[in-house]
Nucleic acid binder design. Structure first.
Lengths: 232, 232
DNA sequence: ACCTGAACACCGTTCAAGT
DNA sequence: ACCTGAACACCGTTCAAGT
C-alpha cells in the first residue's frame, strides 16, 4: 500500500495525439457520421468532457485529423524530371484521399494550415520552381494540379457512393430505377450513349484512367507555359 | 358559416417545392450549420414532424436543394466554337458554386442524379461530341473539366474561409500568428517567397486568374487529343 | 390526406466538483 | 493538472392522435 508511490502525473490517460489517433480510426472505419465526442471518449475509456481539456472543439479535432492524414502524402525528391515528379505527387495525394474519404469533406469545409499541409505545399512549389515556373504562374500551376486531384477524387467517391446506394436498395427498387433510367435515356440521348458504353466497367480502373487523362492534359498545358528552366 | 364550403384539400400549407425553397434560402443565408428541420418548419409556420410527410429524411431534402441550384448552370448553345462553349459552361458552373457555397459539400458527400444534374451532363456531353470526342475519352474530357471547376472552387472557398477566420480572431491573435508565420517561413523558403508576393492581393480576382489559367491548360491538352471533328 | 405534440435517442459543450 | 458527472440546449426522426 504505502510502498507504492503515488502515480507520477506523467502517465495520464489522454494525449492530443492519442485522441487524434482514435478520431482518424473512427473516421476511416465509419465515416464522418460515425464520429462523435462521446464515441472517441468511450474508445479511450474516458468521459466526453475530458476531451475538451486537450481540444477546444470538435472542429479543431477534425482539423487535427485532417493534418494527420496529410502527412501520408509524399513526393519522391529524386525524380528524373519535373513532369514525372509532379505526376507522382498528384498520384500520392489522390491515393491518400481515397484511403481517407472523409478527408475530402474536411478539405471542403475548412481551411487547413497545419504543418503537414504547409510542408506539402512547400515540396510542390519547389518542384515547380525547378521546372521553370515563377510568380503568379507558379501559384496557378500548383493550384491547377491540386484542383484536378481534389475534383477527380470527389467525382470518384460520388460515383462509388451511387453504386453502393443502388446495391443497398431492397427489392422493388429495380422497376422504379429502370423506369427512371428509360425516361432519362429518352430525354438525354448523349447521356444514354455513354451509359450504355459504361455498363459493365470497373469503376476504380476507369476512375484512374480518367484521372491520368486529365492529368496529362494539364501537364501538357503546363509544359507549354513554363519559362526556360533556370541554369544549374 | 354554412355558406363557406369546406376548404378544398388543395390549399395545403406545404409543398415539396416550398420546403426546398426555404431550405435553399436558409442554406444561402447561414450555410450548412444553419439548416435544421425545425428551422425550416418554423419558417413555414409548421411543426418539424410535418416535413416528413413530403420528404423522407434531411438528406433527401439536401439532395433536392442541390438539384435545385444545379438548374442555375446554363450553357450558351449558340456558341461560336467548342472551346469557348466549354469554357462558358465551366464558368457558369463555377459561378453557381460560388453563389451557393454549401452546394460544394453536398456535391462531396452524396451522388446527385437529379433531373437538373442529368440535363447538365447531357449538354456537356453533346458539346464535346460536336468537338470531336468519343468513347472513353469523351467521358474523361467531360470529367476533367468538371473536376477542375469543383477543385478550383473548393480551393477558393477554403482560402476565403481562412481570411475570414483571421479577421474574426480577437486581439492577441496577431502575435501568435506572426510567430507561427515566421516559423513557417524559416522552414519553407519557397512558401515564404509566395506568401510575400501574395501579401496584398484581391482574393477573388486572383482566384479567377488561377481558374482561367488551369482551364486554358486543360483545354490546350484537350484540343491536342480530340479526333477530327465529324463532318456536318 | 395532412398536420400536431410529445416523445426518444442522440448530439456538442460547459462547468462545478472532485482528486 | 486532469478527469467526472450532471446538466443545458439543441438535434433528426417517429408516431399516436387529432381534423
Amino acid at each position: 500500500m504505502w510502498l507504492r508511490p503515488e502515480r507520477p502525473p506523467r502517465d495520464r490517460r489522454l494525449t492530443r495525439e492519442r485522441i487524434v489517433d482514435v478520431a482518424v480510426a473512427v473516421l476511416d472505419a465509419e465515416g464522418h457520421g460515425g464520429l462523435s465526442m462521446r464515441r472517441v471518449a468511450t474508445e479511450l475509456g474516458v468521459t466526453a468532457g475530458s476531451l475538451y481539456w486537450y481540444v477546444r472543439t470538435k472542429d479543431d479535432l477534425l482539423e487535427l485529423a485532417l493534418d494527420r492524414v496529410l502527412a501520408e502524402v509524399s513526393a519522391d525528391p529524386g525524380a528524373p524530371g519535373w513532369r514525372p515528379a509532379l505526376a507522382a505527387l498528384a498520384r500520392s495525394n489522390r491515393a491518400m484521399l481515397l484511403r481517407h474519404r472523409w478527408a475530402l469533406s474536411e478539405l471542403t469545409l475548412r481551411p487547413n494550415l497545419g504543418p503537414n499541409a504547409l510542408a506539402l505545399a512547400e515540396t510542390g512549389l519547389r518542384l515547380l520552381e525547378r521546372a521553370g515556373f515563377a510568380g503568379a504562374d507558379l501559384d496557378a500551376a500548383m493550384a491547377a494540379v491540386n484542383d484536378h486531384v481534389v475534383g477527380a477524387v470527389i467525382a470518384e467517391v460520388a460515383w462509388h457512393g451511387t453504386l453502393e446506394r443502388m446495391g443497398e436498395s431492397g427489392a422493388g427498387w429495380g422497376e422504379r430505377a429502370a423506369g427512371y433510367l428509360r425516361e432519362v435515356a429518352a430525354r438525354h440521348p448523349a447521356l444514354a450513349r455513354r451509359m450504355a458504353a459504361t455498363g459493365e466497367i470497373d469503376v476504380e480502373r476507369e476512375s484512374e484512367r480518367r484521372f491520368e487523362f486529365g492529368l496529362d492534359c494539364l501537364l501538357d498545358g503546363l509544359a507549354a507555359r513554363r519559362l526556360a528552366p533556370p541554369p544549374p
